[in-house]
Design a protein around this nucleic acid. Sequence first.
DNA 1: CGGCAGATACGCT
DNA 2: GCGTATCTGCCGT
Length: 189
Amino acid sequence: MTAETLLDGSALSAAPRLLGCLLERDLGGTKLIGRIVETEAYDQEDVASHSYRGETERTKVMFGPPGHLYVYFTYGMHYCANIVVGPRGHGAAVLIRALEPLEGIPLMQAYRHGRSVEELTNGPAKFTQAFNITSELNGHNLKISPLTLRVQPALPANEVVRATRIGISRGRELPWRFYVRGNPHVSVK
DNA sequence: CGGCAGATACGCT
DNA sequence: GCGTATCTGCCGT
């Protein structure tokens, strides 16, 4: 499946499909690679989504073309990264909640103040810290350096767990979180 | 390991 | 003002 086919669809269809795909970060000669193991879908028609109340200065990237990165700052200190999906004008994205580190682990540990491999990328703000992703990359096109998405074959259905989303108040009953069964880098099992 | 408080800036009401 | 798509350290079991 091409990235276009995957990202042109809804957040709910793209979120499980992004499991197993690779994120590659280029940092001055060093390459970081992680495998996506946990995602959440956010749609314009969803009270938990930043796009629910329409397009604003903060959320405009969500309403832009698919395949770009939506980065937001929260709790006064954390960045979270999403992959924008769906057509222009529709505010939808998939939150990347956790990765499995594959390459460049020493540099990830440097950005994460020496934490263990298990604690490097098992959370949305942990992964952005390990990959040095900040608001500078808000709106970035994921087809190009320094951050690219590499689509991989879909995982077998029995490896994908569907669950409720984390950290929200409204909309928490919707099972719009997906993660890789048994993977140690998932934030909440 | 589970629960809880604190950190700390910003968008939105 | 208030709540936040979170993380960490510290406490007790």
